[in-house]
Simulated assay, not measured.
Amino acid sequence: MNLFVYVIKRTIEISSVPTRLSVAYSQLVIEREALPPATVPIEDVGVLIVDHPTVTYTQAVLSRLGEAGAVVILCDGRHLPASIMIPVVGNAVQTERQQAQITVSEPLRKRAWQAVVVAKIRMQALVLEEACGSDWGLRAMAARVRPGDVENLEAQAAQRYFPRLLGPGFRRHREGKPPNDLLNYGYMVLRAAVARAVVASGLLPSIGLFHSHRGNPFCLADDLLEPYRPLVDRKVAALAARGDGRDGIGREEKRLLLSVLNDVVPLTGGGKTPVSLAVSQGSASLARLFGDGKGLLVLPDGLPVEPDNVDDDP
């Protein structure tokens, strides 16, 4: 096995104390009460999450993070995103790629969505096998998905999956009872990383494969997010089993959910890589697919493995 070197962009979350953010000498400067200033190179930041009402910024923070390709998430009182800021320019050939995205044929779009749904249901099956000892028929369901998922097997799988993973009384709803709040937070972290990857690949995040709500500026990000959701579900199920998170999302819950970006997962076509890089490979593979109609869509193909088992970048 050859040495595999990868660079993971950092996810920084500000939530515990009043904080002032500024920039000095290409460093993000984090100043907190009663603590010495901390610094992080701007180029190392992938996602900045601000979840405290008394954080202040200089203009340079937002502009320099945008130039470096970072995503900034501003949360409301429920720890949900009130604003997600993504870079405007992400790729040297973005006009060419966006034109291909806009004019993609319907059969190719449906095949791409089929691959996303198959990957998602297979990941759900693996999570159930790990947690319950059975996939409850989800592997067979994944094998039945047709282009465009015309039978809506994605929704059927969710109806079978969530009650068995999180209890028979659980109902997945953004405004629902806990642990929905934990799921919301974990999905938010992933969504930001996927949106950043989509823009970096030169694609329009508002034009999706399946998601198409006119008020959603991140339709494509929500499409590519789907197979990664079970990685969050798995962590939330572990927290719920321990009784954590019942009184809100604390620092430990946030730490665990943020760590999903560092989980190393196998990919379709071979290889293993951290989620933060896997989403970038997936977006780039979709851009190539839009361009020439060839190749595999790179998606997660297994539960996280130990970092020592990471293979070469495919």
Rank of each mutant, 00 (worst) to 15 (best):
R214W: 06
R164V: 02
G69F: 11
A240R: 09
T56L: 02
T95H: 15
F290D: 11
V72R: 06
A70W: 14
G248Y: 05
E129P: 01
A221D: 12
D311H: 11
Q98D: 03
P37A: 15
Y228L: 09
V189R: 04
R139K: 06
P307I: 09
P307G: 12
R214K: 12
L296H: 11
D311Y: 06
Y161G: 01
R191M: 06
L303K: 05
L183K: 09
A157K: 02
L153E: 01
L166R: 00
C75N: 15
E253A: 14
M1R: 11
D222L: 03
R174L: 09
E252R: 15
A158K: 03
E67G: 13
A221Q: 06
S280P: 00
A82I: 07
Y57V: 07
Q98E: 15
D222C: 03
G250I: 03
L128C: 03
A192D: 10
L261H: 05
A221R: 04
N91V: 03
E106S: 11
C219I: 03
V7N: 13
A278L: 10
D301T: 00
R164S: 01
V71W: 10
Y185C: 12
I12M: 06
V61D: 04
E253S: 09
M123V: 00
A24P: 00
L126H: 03
L182I: 08
V145D: 00
